[in-house]
């Protein structure tokens, strides 16, 4: 089988106010259906060890996690290699119920932003209040980044992960590089 390679193959930018890294492919399973139903909650608990996230929440446990995407959609995050097994677990549990679990890993590109100015880098590109009070660790935000859809969440105080469609990976990388260019600190969010 061919090697999975990310859209930008590990591109990195570290000359600016934040380090932008195109991560190697991670596993992502999009789950749609009634999020309060046991046939979705149980397999998610089994796979991640985590409960269904609150509205706009993301529960993370190392490499795995579960994110709230909309009132009827969640995103399961895992390692790339585990997707097949997790998908089987989900499909078995869903059975004939009206719900959907689909592997979307290859449709996406993932970036890691690192540094003390990442809130500013994101705030320059997305119409989001990035203040630490409003956007804390444990929340995910689906929004737009300049002209394309994206979603991001804080992993810790100085690390954020961002996912976008694979087809716009280069565009997003260029955006992030521009927003993080040297000397562009705004120092709006006092830490």
């Amino acid at each position: 089988m061919s090697e999975p390679i990310s859209a930008l193959n590990g591109a990195i930018y570290n000359q600016g106010i934040a380090e932008i890294l195109a991560l190697d492919p991670i596993g992502m399973i999009s789950i749609r259906g009634d999020l309060s139903a046991g046939y979705l909650k149980k397999p998610i608990k089994k796979i991640t060890g985590l409960g269904m996230p609150e509205m706009r929440g993301i529960n993370l446990n190392g490499q795995t996690g579960i994110a709230w995407m909309s009132p009827d959609e969640t995103l399961l995050i895992c390692t790339y290699a585990e997707v097949g097994a997790h998908l089987d677990t989900l499909q078995n549990s869903i059975g004939s119920n009206h719900a959907l679990a689909v592997n979307v890993s290859d449709a996406r590109a993932v970036f890691r932003l690192k540094g003390k100015h990442i809130r500013e880098v994101l705030a320059k590109l997305a119409p989001v209040d990035m203040s630490p009070e409003n956007f804390a660790v444990g929340t995910i935000r689906r929004t737009r980044l300049a002209q394309v859809p994206a979603a991001f969440w804080m992993v810790d105080a100085e690390t954020a992960h961002l996912v976008c469609f694979r087809s716009v990976a280069q565009y997003v990388f260029d955006l992030l590089k521009t927003a993080a260019q040297p000397g562009s600190e705004v120092n709006y969010y006092k830490r």
Binding site: R56, S70, R141, R144
Partner: peptide, 12 residues
């Protein structure tokens, strides 16, 4: 009202 996010109109 579906996700509780307050945003400006370019997101809608």
């Amino acid at each position: 009202p579906n996700c509780g996010i307050t945003a400006e109109e370019t997101e809608f």
